[in-house]
Design a protein around this nucleic acid. Structure first.
Length: 497
RNA sequence: GGGCCGUUAGCUCAGUAGGUAGAGCAUCUGACUCUUAAUCAGAGGGUCGCAGGUUCGAGGCCUGCACGGCCUACCA
């Protein structure tokens, strides 16, 4: 408390001044925190409507606008203000003889950051700037604090993330980015809805965290006397819906993983998972391609975009290459020819983070992640993964050591993960148990084997394809951001007291 | 978890070899009815992230801590 007072000391004087102004306004019968303001038009609409008018004569009709004052240039008995709402910014001209001397007296106490409503006519100044000539102004909200500086804006990363509202006020492009994010999500929903997918919601609180091997967040339900885990993936629930006869489902929702935070990882992130009965991983590749291209066309009108200095070309078909071929072309090693006795040497040679008795598939996967991933810049489907690292995928007919799975890489980031779903309950049980054994010290253990899911499969899940898409990462690519925190409104930061 | 860097006024930043903190914007007072980073005149605002240490003296040096950024590690 004492600490806070010390910190707040310097702004206290400004706040105190503003609080005095507020008290004064109240004495004059003006509500400093306003009421609803009916009839407000979007500033962008006013601009669009009047942009073509000639300099000089104001319009006959009134417009009603409201927003925050971003700049204020006072000139004695007149003033110019830049008024901004969600849609845009327009200059307002307030003249004493137009709004009346009493009203202008009140306006004198208005400052940058205050939110006001304006009724007025529209004209162009002699410099050609579209301006609303106020004949009435209404104070809607007084600000107690000063906004970040108008010229440099707000650049301190920490403040931008902790006080995103200030970031949105001060940095136009941040506001635009989050409006775009909303559009992208909407495009995805429209795309899937048009394809006949059903949007569903599955539990966030799960008794067994399944569908991935990430470390879960643990919580506790009091009246159930039971620990619950925040969902790390919706996968096993969505596939239960396939068993139930829903043939095309998707969920666009938050996942929670109790792991490291980085420019590509936030503990809670948005995941799209979709499943289509009677389809397979080829179907999923087509959907991925079509969906991303659909978004790009609507958002950018082009399939070629710039990302952090790289030109990314999304023109389909995207490159499809098997994991084995990819490893061979980068390292010269043919995974097909790796013999079990060579595994130890390979681990040493490539400094792989694996135990000496690692399975061949794990070595191949690790080799891929270490040597190939960072080379995948253009959209690329890496297909056919080792079975050992893919417990929920169906084996490739004729290749029992491989599964029908792909990951989509763009700018060496994993954007999507998809497979032909394993629907054999007996095989699924074996895979779960193998997984539980090999990770006995890790996150997965015997208690996390979801027997209820296996039982569901025993009732029969149609052959299906499924895919997960990391939405935050996709948005990073589409909006040219190099940190996931830039595309999440309130990224996770450590508490600061 | 490890490495490097950062933290000075509300915001953006200076602060040279250790000698009691500066600027611009913002704020306040005054002038000003076509300005737009408005202008002009004046004023106030800081325990220099926190805690120790070295020193006659620390914003600057040393140690620890906190928070943040980047890299790395972890991550089906």
């Amino acid at each position: 408390m004492f600490e806070q007072n010390k910190e707040a000391k310097s702004i206290l004087s400004i706040r105190e001044e503003r609080i005095k102004e507020i008290e004064e306004l109240r004495r004059e019968g003006i509500d400093p925190f306003g009421q609803s303001f009916p009839g407000k038009e979007a500033i962008i609409k006013v601009i669009d409507k009047f942009n073509q008018i000639a300099t000089g004569e104001p319009s006959q009709e009134n417009v009603i606008i409201a927003g925050r004052i971003m700049a204020l240039r006072k000139h004695g008995k007149a003033a110019f203000a830049d008024l901004e709402d969600q849609t845009g910014k327009i200059q307002v001209y307030i003249k004493s003889n137009f709004i009346g001397t009493d009203s202008f007296e009140i306006f004198k106490d208005i400052s940058v950051g205050d939110i006001i409503g304006i009724t007025g006519t529209v004209f162009k100044t002699k410099t050609g700037e579209l301006t609303v000539l106020a004949n009435k102004f209404t104070l809607l909200t007084k600000t107690l604090r000063t906004l970040p500086e108008k010229w440099h804006g707000l650049t301190d990363t920490e403040t931008r993330y902790r006080k995103r509202y200030l970031d949105l006020i001060a940095n136009q492009e941040v506001k635009e980015l989050f409006i775009e994010r909303s559009k992208i999500v909407k495009y995805i929903r429209n795309f899937l809805d048009n394809k006949g997918f059903l949007e569903v919601e599955t539990p966030v609180l799960q008794p067994i965290p399944g569908g991935a091997t990430a470390t879960p967040f643990v919580t506790h339900h009091l009246s159930l006397h039971q620990d619950l885990y925040l969902k790390i993936a919706p996968e096993l629930y969505l596939k239960r819906l396939l068993v139930g006869g829903l043939e095309k489902v998707y969920e666009l929702n938050r996942n929670f993983r109790n792991e490291g935070i980085s420019t590509r990882h936030n503990p809670e992130f948005t995941m799209l998972e979709l499943y289509e009965a009677y389809a397979d991983y080829h179907t999923m590749m087509e959907i991925a391609e079509e969906m991303v291209c659909d978004i790009l066309k609507k958002l950018r009108g082009t399939l070629v975009i710039q990302y952090q200095g790289e030109m990314l070309d999304f023109t389909p078909p995207w490159k499809r290459i098997s994991m084995y071929e990819a490893i061979k072309s980068v390292t010269g090693i043919n995974p097909d020819e790796i013999k079990n006795e060579e595994i130890g040497d390979l681990i040493a040679q490539f400094q792989l983070e694996l135990p000496k008795d690692a399975a061949k598939g794990e070595v191949i996967n690790e080799l891929f992640e270490k040597k190939v991933e960072h080379t995948l810049i253009q959209p690329t489907f890496i297909i056919d993964y080792p079975v050992e690292v893919s417990p929920l995928s169906k084996q490739k007919p004729g290749y029992p050591h491989l599964v029908e799975r792909f990951e989509l890489f763009i700018n060496s980031m994993e954007i999507a993960n998809a497979f032909t779903e394993l629907n054999d309950p007996l095989e699924q049980k074996v895979r779960f148990l193998q997984q539980a054994e090999s990770k006995s010290e890790g996150e997965i253990n015997q208690n996390f084997v979801d027997y209820d899911y296996i039982e569901a499969l025993e009732y029969g899940m149609p052959p299906a394809g499924g895919m997960g898409v990391g939405i935050d990462r996709l948005i990073m690519l589409l909006t040219n951001k190099d940190s996931i925190r830039e595309v999440i409104l309130f990224p996770q930061l450590k508490k600061k007291d």
